[in-house]
C-alpha cells in the first residue's frame, strides 16, 4: 500500500511575528521555520502503519525551496520518498488542496495523513478539502487510528468528548495531538536522508478565491489592574468581577 503524508513548513511556534513591508504577510527575517507540529503526528502514523502492514511512504509539501528542510526531516524520521511541489507564490487553502490532490492521485496513495492544522494560517481545512477533491473518505482531528483490512476506525475530538468514526480506504486522516508520540530522527536516518533526492514538480496553477487584504497586529490589550498581592485582595477582585465586569 502507498501511504502519503502532507507536510507544511511553518514558523516555530515561539517565533516573534513581524508584519512585512507589503502589509499582507509576515517578515520572514530572523524567523526559524520548522515542520508543522501536527504534521509530525501525521508522519509518525504513516511510519507506524507501514511498519505494521508494509508498503511505501511518501511525503509531499507544497511551497518554496525552504520546504525541502521539512521534507528532509520527514525522510530522516523514516519516510521513503519526498516530493516538493514547487511554488513560491501565495495559494489559498483550496488551491493548495487542488495541487496536493493531483499529486496524491499521481502517487496512487490510498491512505493519506495530514496534520489537523498548519500553525501559520491556522486554517485546519486542507485535509478535508483534499479528501473531497479526491473522493476519499476523511476523518479529521483524529486522536486514534486503526486499520483492519480496508476498514478505518478513528476517534476524533469534539466538544465535551470524542466521536468514534468508521470508514474505509481510500481515506484521509488529519492528526491531532494525542494520536501518537512522534519519534526522533536517528543519526542513521539523518545521514540517509541527506543522500536522498527530493523530487521537484511544478504544480498546476489554480485561481485563489481568498485574497489577503491586510495583515495587522491584534489590538494591544490595556494593561490590567493588579488588585493586590495576597488573599486580602480577593473581596475586591470578586467585587470587580461582579460589578465592573459583570461576569460572575
Amino acid at each position: 500500500m502507498k501511504i502519503a503524508v502532507c507536510v507544511s513548513h511553518v514558523p516555530d511556534t515561539a517565533a516573534r511575528i513581524n508584519i512585512g513591508s507589503d502589509g499582507k504577510s509576515i517578515d520572514p527575517a530572523g524567523v526559524t521555520f520548522v515542520v508543522n507540529p501536527y504534521d509530525e503526528f501525521a508522519i509518525e502514523e504513516a511510519l507506524k502503519t507501514k511498519e505494521k502492514l508494509g508498503g511505501e511512504t511518501v511525503a509531499i509539501s507544497l511551497g518554496g525551496d525552504a520546504n525541502k528542510e521539512t521534507l528532509r526531516k520527514a525522510l530522516a524520521m523514516g519516510i521513503d520518498n519526498a516530493v516538493l511541489l514547487k511554488d513560491d507564490s501565495y495559494r489559498d487553502s483550496l488551491s493548495v488542496a487542488k495541487a496536493l490532490a493531483e499529486e496524491i492521485k499521481a502517487q496512487g496513495a490510498e491512505l493519506v495523513f495530514f496534520g489537523k492544522q498548519s500553525v501559520d494560517y491556522d486554517n485546519s481545512v486542507v485535509g478535508q478539502m483534499t479528501s473531497e477533491l479526491l473522493g476519499y473518505n476523511c476523518v479529521s482531528v483524529a486522536v486514534s487510528f486503526t486499520l483492519d483490512g480496508t476498514k478505518v476506525t478513528c476517534e476524533r475530538e469534539i466538544e465535551g468528548g470524542k466521536e468514534v468514526v468508521e470508514t474505509t480506504l481510500p481515506a484521509v486522516v488529519t492528526a491531532q495531538k494525542g494520536l501518537n508520540e512522534p519519534r526522533y530522527a536517528s543519526l542513521k536516518g539523518i545521514m540517509a536522508a541527506k543522500k536522498k533526492v527530493i523530487e521537484e514538480k511544478q504544480p498546476a496553477a489554480s485561481a485563489n478565491y481568498v485574497e489577503v487584504a491586510a495583515m495587522k497586529r491584534p489590538a494591544a490589550k490595556q494593561a490590567g489592574k493588579i488588585v493586590g498581592t495576597d488573599s486580602s485582595a480577593v473581596p475586591e477582585l470578586v467585587r470587580l468581577l461582579r460589578e465592573e465586569a459583570k461576569v460572575i
Binding site: I17, K24, I26, M215, K216, R217, P218
Partner: peptide
C-alpha cells in the same frame, strides 16, 4: 500565527 497577527 496563533493570534499573534490578524488578517483581513
Amino acid at each position: 500565527y496563533a493570534g499573534k497577527a490578524l488578517v483581513d
